[in-house]
């Protein structure tokens, strides 16, 4: 089952990861920061919004240290994602193997696939998918760092846009489920709220507002 997850990660998810992390690697190089820092950010933080917040702060008067709370807030979606994923990974200590890999891409695909798999196959599937995505992220970061001088800005921007496109496709493919439809509709409607908040809190604020309302809407319909 490890192999099944691995194979599934090599299609569209790998393209989305490669494009995004390639652009990140190039941005790190453009900021004059070394490959070691870029790889540590991609492989150990493994959450693009927080990585970008920290990178943008390097060289500013406050420096990267002052940006840490903002970067943490930008990646705070890890908490609800881990909560939603945990019950599908089994109850033993082995589920902690999944910890470093909980990020949007593995989470989104796992929430599609894991419910249909038998319980013993779920964690291996997730680890196969997640390890592949994580490896692609590292390799792409290194590639982007090396290729930065050759990539024009508009190409980098288009590569970064592959990430929201991919997530848009994942949620569009799942819209038949009423639970997903409600969360997506209210999340999209709550997005302008994010514009009123500090940028690092924008997504978390919109997600909390839209997601909580969608949850309450679903409970009301169940009664």
């Amino acid at each position: 089952m490890l192999g099944a997850g691995l194979r599934e990660a090599l299609g569209a998810p790998a393209l989305a990861m490669a494009a995004t992390f390639l652009a990140f690697g190039a941005a790190v190089q453009a900021a004059g920061v070394g490959l070691g820092w870029a790889l540590a950010a991609s492989l150990l933080v493994y959450g693009m919004p927080g990585q970008m917040v920290l990178l943008a702060a390097i060289g500013t008067p406050g420096g990267a240290l002052a940006a840490v709370p903002g970067a943490v807030a930008a990646n705070a979606r890890f908490v609800p994602m881990a909560v939603a994923l945990a019950p599908w990974l089994g109850g033993g200590v082995r589920r902690w193997l999944a910890l470093p890999f909980i990020a949007v891409t593995p989470w989104a695909m796992a929430m599609r696939r894991l419910p249909a798999l038998p319980a013993p196959a779920r964690l291996p599937w997730f680890l196969g998918f997640a390890l592949t995505s994580w490896s692609v992220a590292g390799l792409s970061t290194a590639g982007g760092h090396a290729l930065a001088p050759l990539l024009p800005l508009w190409v980098l921007a288009a590569l970064l846009f592959v990430n929201p496109l991919y997530f848009g496709l994942i949620i569009a493919a799942e819209l038949r489920a009423p639970f997903v439809r409600r969360a997506v509709l209210l999340g999209a409607l709550a997005a302008p709220l994010g514009l009123l908040l500090p940028p690092t809190l924008a997504l978390l604020g919109a997600g909390l507002a839209g997601g909580s309302l969608a949850f309450l809407w679903g409970r009301r319909e169940r009664r």
Binding site: A23, A27, M52, A56, R77, V79, P80, M81, V83, A84, A86, P87, V104, W107, A108, M111, L153, L156, A157, L160, F161, N163, P164, F167, G168, I170, I171, F179, V180, R182, A183, V184, L185, L186, G187, A188, A190, A191, G194, L195, P199, A202, L203, L204, A206, G207, L208, A209, G210, G211, S212, A214, F215, G218
Partner: peptide, 26 residues
């Protein structure tokens, strides 16, 4: 768990919406 999944999906939808309608940075 259902609330957390709902918040995660809504966050993803907000991310896509903002990236298309009101992007920042690159």
């Amino acid at each position: 768990v259902r609330w957390a999944a709902s918040v995660s999906l809504a966050t993803l939808a907000a991310f896509v919406t903002l990236a298309v309608v009101a992007p920042t940075g690159a």
